[in-house]
């Protein structure tokens, strides 16, 4: 039991947690862009899957990780345009269209995987990059500064997203169309355009989340590779109160507890494995129950906008 508190174990847990948090960060922060503008996109997992496939396929065939990342972004953008077209232009029920998008992504990625790749293969994806100087610091360097570029990217995204959402004129538009689209419209803000851009940003980030699995963390593709991570990302948006920093804490909490339970199993701490596996979910639900703050929820979430309905 004392093993759990050794420095090397703590370092191991944190290193794992940072890796595990990466896809959640991309996907959840992307979903926050979308939801703050008033569009719930439940298709995140589907976008992740199809982008994970696309980037893996490109890397497998060209060997270029950057082309692979580009493929994930392009596919994410296309899926985002589809979601925006359905939910913004056609004003369809968002929950159902999101689930439709998920099933589309799941099915299409599975079909393409079978027809174009066939069996499980591995690629050389983004490799860990040791940051000069910082990476050499004992323990700290190992935990924080020896990851792949996509991992660093996920964490740099947090302040970047905060800046865009809170400090720019576009961020203000993004928030206003999710809170009171009629007010934004009355000031000449093009509600539909802001929502299109927001949904597409969200989908592109979901695409990068998929790529972070298939060409960075796992370097392979398999049917249903994400195993529902996209849905956990949607939950993390609520957990984080639609704020990038809140999402960061949520993602870190979830992945740290997950890393912690893996270490407990490895170290042979005597608890049933079923309990250990449940731990991250239980804790996250408990934290959610304590911290949830509906006040911050975008007031126009899930509501299509039509001029002159007030």
């Amino acid at each position: 039991m004392n093993d759990v508190f050794q420095l090397s174990v703590v370092a191991g847990i944190l290193t794992s947690a940072i890796r595990l948090a990466t896809p959640y960060l991309y996907a959840a922060i992307g979903e926050a862009f979308s939801q703050r503008s008033g569009v719930v996109n439940l298709g995140v997992d589907g976008i992740m899957l199809i982008s994970a496939y696309a980037s893996f396929y490109i890397v497998l065939n060209t060997g270029s990780i950057w082309l692979g990342l580009l493929a994930a972004i392009v596919v994410g953008l296309l899926m985002g345009l589809l979601m925006a077209f359905i939910s913004v232009t056609l004003k369809a029920e968002q929950g159902i269209s999101g689930i439709g998008l998920y099933m589309f992504g799941l099915g299409l990625s599975s079909l393409l995987f079978k027809t174009t790749i066939g069996t499980v293969k591995t690629v050389t994806g983004f490799q860990p990059v040791k940051i000069p100087l910082l990476g050499d610091i004992p323990v700290v360097g190992e935990i924080f500064f020896q990851h792949s570029l996509l991992v660093y990217g996920a964490f740099l995204l947090v302040p970047l997203a905060w800046f865009v959402l809170e400090k720019t004129t576009w961020g203000l538009k993004n928030k206003s169309v999710g809170q009171n689209p009629a007010a934004a419209d009355s000031l000449g803000v093009n509600v539909d355009r802001v929502r299109y851009v927001s949904v597409c940003i969200g989908a592109i980030l979901a695409g990068i989340a998929g790529a972070s699995l298939s060409i960075s963390l796992l370097n392979l593709f398999q049917d249903n590779l994400t195993a529902g991570q996209g849905f956990i990302a949607v939950a993390l948006v609520y957990f984080g109160g639609w704020k990038p920093v809140g999402i960061l804490w949520g993602a870190l909490l979830f992945s740290t507890v997950n890393a912690f339970q893996l270490w407990m199993q490895v170290l042979g701490v005597k608890i049933p494995s079923d309990v250990a596996i449940m731990l991250p979910y239980l804790l996250t639900i408990a934290a959610l129950a304590i911290t949830i703050n509906r006040v911050r929820q975008p007031a126009a979430l899930n509501k299509p906008f039509e001029r002159g309905e007030s």
């Binding site: 576009w170 007010a183 007031a299």
Partner: peptide
Amino acid sequence: QHFMLVPTMTVAENVALGLKSSREPML
């Protein structure tokens, strides 16, 4: 008649909404 304001934004944010800023793209 029904105010076109976003209750969760400040007065300044409500006024600035939709306008070009002098420090575009920043507020």
